[in-house]
């Protein structure tokens, strides 16, 4: 069972990485198309901005799964408890996992289920009735990345518990940063 979860997590990680790489590259190409169209042909197509923006959202949300998997999320302070397998370490890890779950489970739930009216009135259900202006496709195909990213994180979280604690790397200080 735990091998299965770890294999699933690793497989999803590879896929998310490939799609994210594709999305960043796609963003770059799309904006370049806009630049060339505007400055060389002075007629930018109207879809470039939307495509680039949606690719950015995909980049960011899939990137979120990458940073979760590689434990490179920003933390304010290192755990004061000793690492697993000590009991305190287990408790700290359980607390961290509970925090992740309380954030992502409502997102996953409400992506599919509405307050009233079940599946059809969930976030994705509502988005399926809307059309992305310039692209003419249903918004659901763009918005679906929200639950996808959260479900991937859920599986990575399960894999972290399935992993041998000794094999886990500590969160390394991020060498690339935003600030």
């Amino acid at each position: 069972m735990s091998n299965l979860i770890m294999a699933l997590s690793n497989g999803l990680h590879r896929t998310a990485r490939s799609v994210a790489i594709f999305a960043v590259a796609g963003m770059f190409v799309t904006v370049m198309v806009q630049v060339v169209a505007r400055y060389i042909f002075s007629s930018p197509p109207i879809w470039t901005e939307d495509v680039a923006r949606y690719m950015m959202v995909w980049t960011g949300l899939l990137g979120t799964t990458l940073s979760f998997k590689t434990r490179s999320d920003a933390i304010l302070m290192q755990s004061v408890f000793p690492p697993r397998p000590s009991v305190l370490g287990l408790i700290a890890e359980a607390i961290r996992s509970a925090a992740v779950l309380s954030f992502i489970l409502p997102v996953i739930w409400f992506s599919f289920m509405g307050l009233r009216g079940g599946l059809a009135k969930g976030y994705l259900g509502r988005q399926s009735g809307l059309t992305a202006d310039t692209l003419g496709i249903a918004m659901i195909w763009i918005a679906v990345v929200v639950p996808i990213a959260m479900i991937i994180i859920l599986i990575h979280l399960a894999a972290q518990w399935a992993e041998d604690p000794a094999a886990q790397r500590d969160a390394s200080p991020a060498e690339g940063g935003l600030d």
Binding site: R17, A20, I21, A23, V24, A25, M56, T59, G60, L61, L62, G63, T64, T65, L66, S67, F68, T70, S72, D73, A74, A174, G176, G177, L178
Partner: peptide, 16 residues
């Protein structure tokens, strides 16, 4: 490209 996606992800999840 991968590092870019990962770094963007760390800030996006905070914004979210």
């Amino acid at each position: 490209l991968e590092a870019t996606a990962r770094l963007t992800g760390t800030i996006f999840i905070i914004l979210a």
